[in-house]
Design a binder for these strands. Structure first.
Length: 304
DNA sequence: ACCCAGGCATTGG
DNA sequence: CCAATGCATGGG
């Protein structure tokens, strides 16, 4: 068992306690992925798996992340790959300051950014991961979605035990593709969702590698390609744009919870539909993905 | 029982 | 292009 340590310097302001729990795969993913005592995550490094333990040091204005990497036969290349994955997952390199500055004329958003000061947008490591998580989150209550996601991860994800605790990485496409619809239904997926995720796994395994190559394309082409997949509509495509591809201005105006947040915070509860929310979002350009993340954070904190 | 929840596909105008 | 409908699931 090797133990490698290194540090990551996130762009300030950065608050690990605000940021890490926003990972959809991480959030509520079980006791083994708690933030107390460090953010822990099993990383899939191709030929091996390694557990990363990330501990914040320094203040929000002067942040450093101390990373401890545990596993067998770890090389310098492994450490470099792990560092790259963690930086992306935790949004460490992101600059939230321009977004904060732009909220000066928006008292509501300004209050939220002050409440969640230092929260960065987290990312998923692959388009495949964000697509599957999107499907599993469609049209069901968030707590239910977490249960289903956790079941899928803990059934098909690569796992390894450290210090008596079993950790999971996100399943590889091969594992989902090989699963039967019946097995997936046993994990509380509907018939349709089971078919959808298997189709997405098949797309991810396509030898052309087009799915993970979408990061090179402009936004509208990404949406066009993704929505050709069965089960993937505009909402899921926008989810991928923000979560996996890190587009700072993507905006899921069709999202019911987002509509609720905008209605409650800006219109005294008067219900705003997709069209209204889309128009209203102009004020947050070109940071609409940030605005969305902060509105969701406010929702989850019971502020809307 | 009924309704809704961080949608999607299909059909009909 | 918009509206209505069926599909599924667990929790209020």
């Amino acid at each position: 068992m090797d133990r490698v340590t290194f540090t990551i310097e996130p762009k300030a302001p950065y608050d690990q306690g605000m940021t890490a729990p926003e990972q959809p795969f991480f959030r509520g993913a079980g006791e083994h992925n708690r933030t107390k005592d460090g953010y822990r995550r099993l990383l899939d490094l191709r030929e091996k798996a390694a557990l990363a333990v990330v501990r914040p040091r320094g203040g929000v204005g002067d942040p450093t992340l101390e990373v401890e990497l545990l596993g067998g036969g770890l090389t310098d290349d492994d450490a470099a790959a792990a560092a790259g994955q963690l930086e992306w997952v935790l949004g460490a390199g992101q600059d939230v300051k321009p977004f904060y500055d732009s909220t000066r004329s928006d008292p509501v958003m300004r209050e939220i950014t002050e409440r969640f000061f230092g929260m960065h947008l987290t990312h998923s490591l692959t388009v495949f991961e964000s697509l599957v998580l999107a499907i599993l989150g469609q049209q069901i209550a968030a707590p239910v979605a977490r249960v289903v996601r956790r079941l899928v991860v803990e059934t098909y994800g690569p796992s390894e035990t450290f210090d008596g605790v079993e950790y999971f990485a996100f399943p590889r496409p091969e594992a989902i593709q090989a699963a039967t619809v019946e097995e997936l239904r046993g994990l509380k997926l509907s018939q349709r969702k089971a078919e959808y995720v298997k189709g997405i796994a098949a797309a991810a395994m396509d030898s052309s590698g087009w799915l993970e190559g979408l990061k090179e394309l402009p936004e509208d082409e990404v949406v066009e390609r993704l929505t050709e997949l069965r089960g993937v509509g505009k909402w899921s495509a926008h989810w991928v744009l923000t979560r996996a591809l890190g587009h700072p201005d993507a905006f899921p105006s069709g999202d019911l919870a987002l509509q609720r947040a905008v209605s409650n915070l800006y219109f005294r509860g008067e219900k705003q539909g997709e069209r209204e929310v889309e128009n209203f979002s102009e004020r947050w350009r070109p940071f609409r993905a940030y605005a969305t993340a902060y509105l969701f954070a406010a929702l989850r904190a019971g502020l809307a």
